[in-house]
Each structure stands twice: as C-alpha cells, then as structure tokens.
Amino acid sequence: MSGPEALERLSAHLTGELGRSPHTVRGYLSDLRSLLTHLDEHGHDLDDLDVPVVRSWLSRARESGAGRSTIARRVAAVRALTRFLHREGVLAVDPGPRLAVPAQHRTLPTVLDEEQARSAFSGPEPETPVELRRGAVVELLYATGIRVAELCALDRSDLDRTRDTVRVLGKGDKERTVPVGGPALDAVDAWITGGRSALLGPRSGDALFLGARGGRLGVRQAREDVHAHLRAAGVDGAPHGLRHSAATHLLNGGADLRSVQEFLGHASPRSTQIYTHVSVDRLRSAYQQAHPRA
C-alpha cells in the first residue's frame, strides 16, 4: 500500500467508521503527510514504521520549535495510522501504544467573575435584528456552557420549552440535553420574534440563528457577535470564556463535578477538573485577603 493510498483510506476510516470531525481528520492528514516525507527522505516504506523512526520524526519537529500540543497531536495522528495499518496487515505489530504522549501544560481558563457576568447582560435593550441575535447568542452560551459550533448547529426544534432544555449535538456526534435558564430563553424568544423573521431567506430552514444572508449562522460570525456584545458591555471576554465561566460559576454555586461534566459534554472527568482548580485558586486568593492568620 502506497503512502497516499494509506492516507486516503485512513481518511475514509476516520470519517466514516470512527466519526472523527473534519477538523480532526484534516489535522491528522497534514501531520501524516509530513511523516511520509520523512520516511521518503530516509529511504523507508510504510512497513518500516516503528518507534525509532517515529521518534526521529518527532525530534525534528521539536528542533523546529513545535510545542507540546503539536507533538501530542502528531503522536495521536501516528497512532491512528499505525492502528489502521496493523488492522490492514501492513504492519505486523502496532508500535503506536509505545509512543509516549508529552504531558500537557494546562493553563487555567479565563473566566468572568459574577459581577462581570452581570454587566455583560445589563446593557441597553437590543433593537436591531443583529443586536437581538448577539444578545441571544451570549445569553445562551453562558446559560448552557455549550460550544460555539454547537450553538450554530442548533435548530428551533432543539429547544424544548416544556422542560426548558436544549438538545445539543456535541463532539463525536454525542447528543446531550442541557437546561436553559429563563433570561436566556427570553433572549432567544426576543430574537425569534423580532430578529430572525427579518433575516429569513431560502436557506434558513429550521436553523435557530441566522446570518446576514439568511443562512445558518457561521462560527466566525457567532464569535464576532460575542466579542461585539461584550465590548459594548465593557467586559473583556471571549466565546469560550463564557463556557469556562458557566462551568466555574456552577461549581462555585455548589454543583458537583459529575453534573458539570455532563453539562459540558466532556467525555472524561479529567477535562472538567481544571474548573475545580479555578475555584480553588479563587478560594485561596479570598483566604489570603480575608483570613487574619493567612
């Protein structure tokens, strides 16, 4: 099996059988084309793939300044390839499990404090369709903690007004149901009645949020909506910061980690635990400022 043929078949496998996102598949293929070039330069074929060969490729990336996240992604891409080649009989042994993934340096996410969150939603009443959409986008992101891409994929039918929930299709096509608070529902209603109708077009379908040309709102425009709304409210924040803020405020309010994990759609509790670090950091800061024996 040639290198290009292997990548073409791997792409179909990742997309069709494993349900990987187009973004993930594109990233893997980009990395693996670099690996194929490395193999060719050193006179190797696909069936020569082993740990030393892969390590030499990764070492070159480190020497070129690649960070830990880039190396970790490359290891994941190689593991996907070697697992596939082993399944196809090209490799007698899969070397992927013996490749070490560099430990990730996890920075604490930037979050709004409760006062900033209140400021973000206390501006003048929106009037134009775009203002109504911006307000609804920000309210819904903060109320539900969903990702921007998940928000853009919502249809009106995903809102359940009898239970005040929204159905979300997350990573890996995993569906979850998330509660929605009253202010966010009010903002969405205002958008639907006063803004969405003004932007309706042939391509609107049942999309909850629409762009200027009447099609489904794109991720880039949704991000711009968030930045514009927060700037107008005098708040420094970003779309994913609303997700971080929602999770942190839930934990600060007494929610347990497992519930927040389900709320965010995290496959592993390890992804959610970083928010406990934010809460502990705030607690430590408050303790040092307020406790007489700190």
Rank of each mutant, 00 (worst) to 15 (best):
L18C: 07
G123H: 08
D158T: 02
H38W: 13
G253T: 03
S119E: 15
S2L: 10
R33Y: 05
A12L: 13
V54N: 01
V280P: 04
D45S: 11
H266A: 03
R282G: 12
A290T: 12
T37Q: 09
P22G: 12
L99H: 08
P124K: 12
R26K: 14
G19H: 03
L199G: 01
A198W: 05
R133Q: 08
G172V: 07
L39S: 05
A233S: 11
L159R: 04
R270M: 13
R98S: 13
Y142N: 02
D164W: 10
S268W: 11
R231G: 14
V138S: 01
G237F: 00
H249P: 11
G43L: 12
Y142S: 01
R161L: 15
G135T: 06
D47F: 09
L58A: 05
G241P: 08
A228P: 02
T110N: 06
R196N: 01
E114H: 10
P95H: 03
H291G: 04
T165H: 07
E63P: 02
E224D: 12
G211C: 05
H240Y: 06
T70P: 04
S119A: 15
D31K: 10
L32I: 11
D50C: 15
V90E: 08
L39V: 13
D48I: 06
R147D: 12
S21M: 02
A100E: 14
P52Y: 10
D256H: 06
A255K: 11
P52F: 11
A267W: 07
T193V: 10
L32A: 04
A212Y: 13
V53Y: 10
G237C: 03
E8L: 13
L200V: 15
A136Y: 03
A143I: 04
F84Y: 12
E127V: 15
R133P: 00
V188T: 08
G145Q: 07
S56P: 02
A212R: 15
E63K: 06
Q261A: 08
T82Q: 07
P97R: 08
V219H: 08
T144R: 05
G27S: 15
G181N: 06
P102T: 04
H229Y: 03
L283C: 06
V138W: 00
H266C: 07
T162E: 15
T110I: 12
R156Y: 00
D94T: 03
L251N: 10
V137R: 02
R243C: 02
V180Q: 01
A290F: 11
A120Y: 02
R20H: 14
R213C: 11
A286S: 10
R20F: 13
R216H: 07
A100Y: 00
E127A: 13
A190K: 03
R284Y: 07
G43M: 09
A136E: 03
L132V: 06
G194E: 05
